[in-house]
Structure formats: structure tokens, C-alpha cells
């Protein structure tokens, strides 16, 4: 193994300096919090509210991103159209924009007098009676199939809102849009190379063996892409969980309603309560770790299954 010692040493030093030491400091700081205060924090309904909201919305945004990111990546790879290079470049913008800039932009666009908020307001006024009937129907179905409990856990105790919000900014819907905005590039960028590597011959073989288009998609294409899709999904999810700048301006920051955990950490810092702030950081870190480990396990399972099938 030529150069093993050098590269390994470099990797360890680099990882320690950049990742491990700061994280260890986080744990160290939070360890200064006496146990009764830890208990009080863990039983704080506000903290639970922010955690549920942060993880619930991030998960929902990542799921939506996985679906629509898939379509976008598919279109860009399979159907090159005039200007597709430009669209391809635009995908990266949420990466490149300072998060505060995107946050302020989104809040301005989606508030009542914004470019998108104004038409939305008109739309809601026209459509709300119909929506009302529709939502109670949907909620009835959700209750019947026991999905309501999952929704309640994700911070939506009443199921789907029976009235559409008058404006998107300053609601959870607005926060969801911000989370989707920052997550798009992760899914598209991880799927693109996997899609490009996909052999057309396999699809042709499936077709010549009599598989329908639907069968080809579900049994040939999707299993091959699943590992990449899951990677993109977990990246988008992780990014949303840790997001601050782009969501803080479009949220109304009402504790228990629209407050994310990162904002709560900021408030603890404002009160010079470093141990509590770092403790919340550790809680988020552990929660993210568990969820990402679960997703990784799923990915490992998917790639093994994919290889086994091939």
C-alpha cells in the first residue's frame, strides 16, 4: 500500500481538527449542565415541540425532494433540451446563495403582498370553501387508516388544515418551502451520475423479454437508483435539520408552533446559557445521528439487494 501511512495520518489529523475536536468540545460543554437542569430541559414541552417540528418538516421536505428531484434529474439526464445546461446550473443556486439571502427572499416573495403571496391570497379566498369540505374528507380517511397519529407526532395534530393559510410566509407551509428549496440540489446532484451510469441495454433487455414499461421502472430502474436516491434523501434531510438562515425569516418563531430547534439554541445563547445551548446541540446531533444511521442501514440493504438481483 504505497503512501498509506502518509494519507492515513493526514486523514486522521484533518478529521480530528475539523470534525472531531469541535464535536468533542460540544459534548464537553454540555456535560457541565447539572442533571436536574438536563431533566427539566428534556421535559420542556417547548423543546419537544421544536424537535418534532424540525425533524418532521425536514423529513417531509426530504420526501418531497426525493420525488420531485428524481423527476428533475431524469429529465435533465434523459431528455436534453435546449437550455438544459442552464437549468442544470440553476439547480446549484440554493447551494451557492448565502442562506440569509434566500431566507429574506422567500419571506418577501411569500408574504401577503409579495409576488407569490398575493396570487396565493386570492386563490385561497376563492378555493377555501371547497378545500374545507375536501380536508374534512381527507382527515376522515386519515383517521380511518390510522395515519393521524403519525401526523400528530410530526406536529400536525389536526391532520390536514381545514382552512388554507391566508399567506404562506410565517406558517409551517412557508417553512416547508424553505426546507424544500435548500434540499433540491442534493437529490438531483446525487441522482444524476447514477442515472448516467444506468445501462440502456438493461432496459432494452427487459423490454425484449416482455416487461411492461411500469415493470421496467419498478423492477429494473428504481432498484438500481435506490442507493443514490437514499443518499440524496439523507443529505437533503440532514441539511434541513441543521438549517437556520433560510428558514428563520419565513418562520414566525412562535414557540410550540413555528419555532425550530436552532432558534431555541440561539435564544439560550442570548441568555448567556451556554451549557443549555450546547446540550440542545448534542440532542440534535444524536437525533440526527440515529436517523442518518437508520437511512444508511436502509441504503446498505438496498444496495445489497440490488447487487443480489443483478
Amino acid at each position: 500500500m504505497p503512501g498509506f501511512g502518509l494519507t492515513m495520518g493526514y486523514t486522521m489529523v484533518y478529521l480530528s481538527a475539523i470534525v472531531i475536536i469541535p464535536l468533542a468540545a460540544l459534548f464537553w460543554q454540555s456535560a457541565r449542565l447539572p442533571w436536574p437542569r438536563v431533566e427539566a430541559l428534556l421535559h420542556d414541552p417547548e423543546l419537544m415541540g421544536t424537535l418534532k417540528l424540525t425533524f418532521g418538516l425536514s423529513l417531509l421536505a426530504a420526501v418531497l425532494n426525493a420525488c420531485f428531484g428524481f423527476v428533475t434529474a431524469w429529465t435533465l439526464v434523459r431528455y436534453p433540451f435546449p437550455g438544459s445546461r442552464l437549468v442544470d446550473g440553476i439547480i446549484d443556486l440554493p447551494f451557492a446563495l448565502p442562506t440569509a439571502v434566500s431566507g429574506i427572499t422567500l419571506a418577501t416573495l411569500y408574504s401577503e403582498n409579495g409576488w407569490l403571496g398575493r396570487p396565493w391570497h386570492g386563490f385561497v379566498e376563492a378555493v377555501n370553501p371547497a378545500w374545507h369540505a375536501c380536508a374534512s374528507g381527507i382527515n376522515g380517511v386519515l383517521a380511518a387508516v390510522h395515519v393521524s397519529q403519525a401526523l400528530a407526532w410530526a406536529g400536525l395534530p389536526d391532520g390536514i388544515a381545514s382552512d388554507l393559510p391566508e399567506q404562506i410566509a410565517y406558517t409551517r407551509l412557508g417553512m416547508l418551502i424553505a426546507f424544500i428549496f435548500i434540499g433540491v440540489p442534493f437529490v438531483v446532484r446525487t441522482l444524476q451520475p447514477a442515472l448516467e451510469d444506468l445501462d440502456r441495454e438493461v432496459e432494452e433487455a427487459a423490454a425484449s423479454l416482455g416487461a411492461s414499461r411500469r415493470q421496467t421502472f419498478w423492477r429494473i430502474i428504481l432498484p438500481a437508483l435506490l442507493p443514490a436516491l437514499l443518499t440524496g434523501f439523507s443529505l437533503a434531510f440532514a441539511r434541513a435539520v441543521g438549517e437556520y438562515g433560510s428558514v428563520i425569516f419565513i418562520s414566525s418563531n412562535i414557540p410550540g408552533k413555528t419555532e425550530i430547534t436552532a432558534h431555541m439554541i440561539m435564544k439560550k445563547l442570548e441568555a448567556n446559557n451556554y451549557p443549555a445551548a450546547t446540550f440542545l446541540g448534542v440532542v440534535m446531533l444524536l437525533a440526527s445521528f440515529v436517523m442518518l444511521a437508520a437511512i444508511n442501514g436502509l441504503q446498505w440493504w438496498a444496495s445489497r439487494r440490488g447487487r443480489g438481483a443483478a
Partner: peptide, 20 residues
């Protein structure tokens, strides 16, 4: 109070520019 901004300037913008 429907919106709690994290600073005085933020509230001013929310009130004056976003019509809240």
C-alpha cells in the same frame, strides 16, 4: 403577536415592508 422576529430591525421590516 403573530410573528416574533429575533430583532428590532426584523420587526420593523416585517411590519413596514411585508404589511404584517
Amino acid at each position: 403577536v403573530p410573528i416574533l422576529d429575533s430583532g428590532a430591525r426584523g420587526s420593523t421590516v416585517t411590519f413596514a415592508q411585508r404589511d404584517q
